[in-house]
């Protein structure tokens, strides 16, 4: 990217490539589906489908900005989904994990977020203070979370959730799905954090040059820890939304979501060399991959080819990211 891009159409496109790409894709898909993909219902479906991933991508996106990575995301979301679901089952369900338990919906919500917080602290501690490479540390916690998921659910599905709990994610505010509102709140919060607080500037500084950050008086370890904690909190809430939306959770819930989230953050312009990435970009990355999923399902493209296309897009995004960084 040229630094001194003049205010021209080319400059605009180059600066907002992600957004432009998305809009063009929407138009092309709209034509291919003869307007079908542009209807409100389609947008609602797309938004609902991508909300949980959006939380994951926002969390891991911030971590990638600090030059880290988080492989535990999918399993932590899954574990949070299982724990929250287990506390929200209908009391008369015979196969419930805790038969007869009847709690207000807030309890499973807090429990699910708690799971995320604990794993965030654990990951953050290992990476920041234990000096473990993030890839290895979170590979470990990913495996631990996967194990806990199996142990906790006895490898069976935790289903039959209370309606009150299901409404958290399945409800609508007018035409707007609740899920979208939660994502919007998270986006607003993180946007302010990254762009308008010293906290946010420090995240970029740590990713940009950890040594220089230390010289500038930034407590690098503590700040890094906080980023993993924040990401964990987002995963925890994502798990709650996932179980609420599905009305169930099992040991496979959230499986492999880390790869989708990392891919979305990457496509959204978060650089794996650290220090670069925007909240808007991450959301566009999530929507772009979501739109590809959605569009190909809509057009009846064979699932196998969908994987092929997704893979190609991730590779091109990373390739271009490296070009830019070089």
């Amino acid at each position: 990217m040229k630094q001194l891009a003049k205010p021209s159409i080319g400059g605009f496109i180059s600066k907002y490539t992600g957004y432009v790409t998305f809009v063009v894709m929407v138009i092309v898909l709209g034509i291919l589906t003869r307007g079908g993909s542009l209807r409100l219902l389609s947008w609602q479906n797309l938004a609902i489908a991508e909300s949980v991933r959006a939380f994951g991508a926002l969390g891991v996106g911030m971590i990638i900005i600090t030059r880290g990575i988080d492989l535990s995301l999918g399993q932590v979301i899954g574990l949070s989904a299982c724990v929250s679901a287990s506390l929200a089952q209908t009391p008369d369900y015979v196969s419930a994990l805790y038969p007869g338990l009847d709690l207000p919906a807030i309890v499973p919500v807090i429990a699910g977020i708690g799971v995320g917080v604990l794993f965030g602290l654990f990951n953050g501690f290992l990476v920041a203070y234990g000096k473990l490479p993030p890839f290895i540390a979170t590979l470990g916690s990913m495996t631990i979370a996967a194990g806990l998921q199996l142990i906790y659910t006895h490898a069976s599905t935790v289903g039959s959730l209370q309606n009150e709990y299901k409404k958290i994610a399945q409800g609508f505010l007018g035409p707007v799905p609740n899920m979208v509102i939660y994502v919007a709140i998270a986006v607003l919060f993180l946007w302010v954090l990254l762009n308008h607080t010293k906290q946010g500037k420090r995240i970029y500084a740590i990713g940009g040059n950890p040594t220089a950050a230390r010289v500038s008086g930034i407590a690098v370890k503590f700040e890094t820890m906080k980023v993993y904690l924040m990401a964990g909190t987002l995963y925890g809430f994502a798990g709650v939304l996932l179980s609420s939306r599905l009305g169930l959770a099992n040991a496979l819930t959230g499986d492999m979501m880390e790869l989708d989230a990392i891919a979305a953050a990457t496509v959204g312009g978060v650089s794996h060399s650290g220090g670069v990435g925007k909240i808007g970009g991450i959301i566009i990355g999530v929507l772009t991959l979501g739109l590809i999923n959605f569009g190909m399902t809509y057009l009846g493209v064979d699932s196998y080819y969908q994987l092929l296309v997704k893979g190609a897009i991730i590779i091109s995004a990373v390739y271009l990211d490296m070009r830019r960084a070089a």
């Binding site: 180059s14 569009g295 091109s316 830019r324």
Partner: peptide
């Protein structure tokens, strides 16, 4: 960066 857009479009 325009290349990325091209890839998306082509694929689509």
């Amino acid at each position: 960066m325009k290349k990325l857009m091209f890839v998306f479009l082509a694929v689509l």
